[in-house]
């Protein structure tokens, strides 16, 4: 396809803000990994094969001379369960694409380039190559960050001092604002927010993202709808 390269570059450009913070966080992971005795090859193997920030932090934390393989796999499954929903939400973007295309593109989908792509799609100008270009760029930034941390002791050891932990929150907030479609989003938004806050308080790990996303989607499914409402009310049995 002719637009492949410009689309990838556009995707990479759009991911510069998130990639910068991913790199800073990667360097923190690298420092932790060095303490656990990971080699640069272990690190790059993990970056390339898993490519999921939060899961990698937990994996490095669980790393030991006798790897807890079962526990580690289970932890990664729970932390990354949100990718099931993230993958599902990409279905419209991939419509009409073949299985091989989907298989090739999905590995480099992280929270960051997914969010950037969703926001871009609201403007009607996202493509799968835009998503992929962002993923490649993010992979390079994340990998160099982790290696800098691992081999050089990290250029930023306390990212909180520079509010870098809030960088993700801020950029995802900005992208979420871009996804706002209007009054119809109030109900799913409130339900998702409430579910996320509750799950964040009472459940471990990243369950809150799954809980909030599902609750929001289900409430939109069950809630009232301006256009389709008329025909669907008839489904309700009357007594």
């Amino acid at each position: 396809m002719k637009h492949r390269k410009p689309e990838m570059i556009r995707g990479a450009r759009a991911n510069v803000p998130v990639a910068a913070s991913a790199m800073a966080y990667g360097s923190v992971l690298g420092v932790l990994a060095a303490q656990k005795g990971l080699s640069w090859l272990d690190m790059m193997y993990m970056n390339s094969a898993v490519f999921a920030g939060a899961a990698q932090f937990v994996m490095v934390d669980m790393w030991s001379n006798h790897m807890p393989i079962f526990e580690m796999t289970l932890a990664v499954l729970v932390i990354n369960l949100r990718y099931l929903l993230i993958g599902a939400s990409l279905d419209p973007l991939f419509s009409g694409r073949g299985l091989l295309h989907k298989m090739g593109m999905m590995h480099l989908v992280a929270d960051e380039n997914w969010a950037v792509t969703m926001s871009e799609q609201r403007n009607g100008s996202a493509t799968t190559w835009f998503l992929f270009g962002g993923g490649v760029f993010l992979y390079l930034a994340w990998s160099s960050g982790t290696l800098i941390g691992l081999l050089g002791g990290g250029f930023i050891t306390r990212p909180e001092d520079y509010a870098l932990d809030f960088a993700f929150t801020a950029v995802f907030t900005a992208l979420a604002v871009g996804l706002w479609r209007g009054k119809g989003d109030v109900l799913p938004g409130v339900v998702a927010g409430a579910a996320a806050l509750l799950a964040h308080k009472f459940l471990p790990g990243k369950w809150y993202i799954v809980a909030g996303g599902l609750a929001g989607a289900v409430s939109a499914m069950l809630g009232p709808c301006e256009i389709e409402e008329a025909e669907e009310v008839e489904d309700v049995p009357s007594y």
């Binding site: 993230i86 993958g87 599902a88 990409l90 929150t169 979420a176 996804l179 998702a192 939109a220």
Partner: peptide, 30 residues
Amino acid sequence: GLLLASRFPRSGRFRRGMDALPGALLFSLV
């Protein structure tokens, strides 16, 4: 997730839920 979603119905209530999913996910994340 992607492959399962392509088997879901593309209209009606289900579609509305899927359309609300990205915003709900991102909002829950932040």
